[in-house]
């Protein structure tokens, strides 16, 4: 038994027959081929799978693909436009906010949404805003620097 879903991913329309139990992350990665979002914990704790759904950061590992039917998804692959990095990507690069890079796509998606909600966050607000995303490499300090730098640049 499958169901047909139609949705926009990174600005392009896709339509597939999917099993109702197919998770959104598996749909994005294995059916459509956007492997930027990663699977770190399958329980929505680590945030490596974070994508934007209608402008809100969500964890795609605990959501079914059918729940995204008719909606708008942005993955990390959709951030850079015309070969130009999104300012948050640029900030992560400049500030050395990643090491192994596995949490990074989710971390960038969450950080981007964080600034959209709160353009001038304090360090405390950044740290709390990133609570749903785990990084085991950086100790978070350079990630906080990156978000702060991206906010400063946007405000400049």
């Amino acid at each position: 038994m499958t169901r047909k879903i139609t949705l926009k991913i990174n600005g392009k329309s896709y339509s597939h027959e999917v099993e109702p139990r197919l998770l959104l992350i598996h749909y994005l990665r294995e059916v459509v081929g956007f492997t930027g979002p990663h699977i770190g914990c399958e329980t929505s704790i680590c945030g490596a799978c974070t994508v934007e759904l209608d402008g809100k950061a969500v964890k795609s590992c605990t959501m079914f693909a059918v729940q995204a039917d008719g909606r708008n998804v942005t993955t990390i692959e959709g951030l850079a436009t015309d070969g130009r990095l999104h300012p948050m990507q640029e900030a992560f690069w400049n500030e050395h906010a990643l090491q192994c890079g596995f949490c990074t796509p989710g971390m960038i998606m969450t950080s981007k949404e964080l600034l959209e909600r709160s353009p001038h966050p304090t360090d405390d607000e950044i740290r709390h805003g990133l609570e749903g995303n785990l990084c085991r490499c950086t100790g978070y300090q350079h990630i906080v620097n990156a978000v702060r730098a991206a906010a400063a640049k946007a405000g400049a």
């Binding site: 492997t35 930027g36 692959e77 690069w93 990643l98 890079g101």
Partner: peptide, 17 residues
Amino acid sequence: RRKEDPRLITGTATYVD
């Protein structure tokens, strides 16, 4: 800043999965 980052920040790096 690192040479390895462009692929990692754009989601185009290849992990085993």
